[in-house]
């Protein structure tokens, strides 16, 4: 049984940095009030890379993901320290606007959360608030493109004006992805996007993630190791708020460097 205690002076093993990073995180600490949820995490996410974050529940991977587009701002008492940069610009610097940041770093949530509006309105929402379309035709085009990219267009093109909440779970999640794509982000964060879905819908989303990785940088938190293995280029293993290991996915699942990682992927705890 590996030692599960938090190591005060911990060093992340593996290849945590990237040559062509889109996002760089250095010495990130996240606190909820007095409680520290993330301890001193440093990692890069490369351009057009799919980064998977795995780890036992409560290890802070979702918290970490949410600090990448400052969604933690909405949580009362949450504090982020350290440096998180995107294309060399610091996110927690007052200069970078949070609206702009979130338009550039999209997010897909654990449970599909379409707005109680029509499918069309759901996808058009981001474009409308940001003023990305000059005309109705532009907007139609954005909606169609995004739904196409999310692989949903064929299924919903005849019922664009029906409520988005009427779709199946998998379709709803793809709708949320389409909604995120519509504002042309550079990075998409996905917080366990398949945990509420059945296996077939999950497979469809995983396929979609692979397709999207051609155009987007993706960070995905997942509790399914198989999923991480199937979709990601690199995998980061979190344990009790610490980043234990980052390595190319194949390596993590075949010969992990750290004993905690090994313990987790061989199912000794989780």
């Amino acid at each position: 049984m590996p030692d599960m205690k938090v190591n005060e002076k911990h060093v992340t093993v593996g290849k945590q940095f990237h040559d062509d990073p889109r996002m760089t995180m250095r010495n990130v600490n996240v606190f909820y009030g007095e409680k520290q949820a993330i301890h001193d995490v440093s990692i890069d996410i490369g351009k057009n890379e799919v980064m998977a974050m795995i780890g036992p529940s409560g290890c802070g991977k979702s918290t970490f993901l949410r600090s990448l587009n400052r969604m933690n701002d909405t949580v009362e008492g949450c504090r982020v320290e350290g440096e998180i940069c995107m294309d060399g610009e610091s996110l927690y610097n007052t200069k970078l606007d949070v609206v702009e940041l979130r338009a550039r770093v999209g997010m897909v949530f654990q449970k599909p959360n379409p707005f109680p509006k029509s499918i069309y309105e759901n996808v058009a929402y981001g474009a409308k608030i940001h003023g990305l379309a000059d005309s109705r035709i532009d907007l139609d085009e954005i909606v169609e493109n995004s739904l196409n990219k999310a692989g949903l267009w064929k299924e919903v093109k005849d019922r664009l004006h029906q409520p988005g909440t009427g779709l199946s779970g998998g379709q709803q999640q793809r709708l949320c992805i389409a909604r995120a794509i519509a504002v042309t982000p550079e990075v998409i964060l996905m917080d366990e996007p398949c945990s509420a879905l059945d296996p077939i819908a999950t497979a469809r989303i995983e396929e979609l993630i692979k397709e999207l990785s051609e155009n987007f940088t993706i960070a995905i938190v997942t509790h399914s190791m198989q999923q991480a293995a199937r979709v990601s280029d690199r995998t980061a293993y979190f344990h009790l708020g610490q980043l234990i290991e980052v390595n190319p996915t194949e390596q993590v699942f075949t010969m992990p460097e750290h004993e905690l990682t090994e313990g987790y992927i061989t199912g000794r705890f989780g």
Binding site: A103, H130, L132, T184
Partner: peptide
């Protein structure tokens, strides 16, 4: 798009 957002 980014330019538009910044403008808005």
């Amino acid at each position: 798009n980014l330019r538009r957002i910044q403008k808005s």
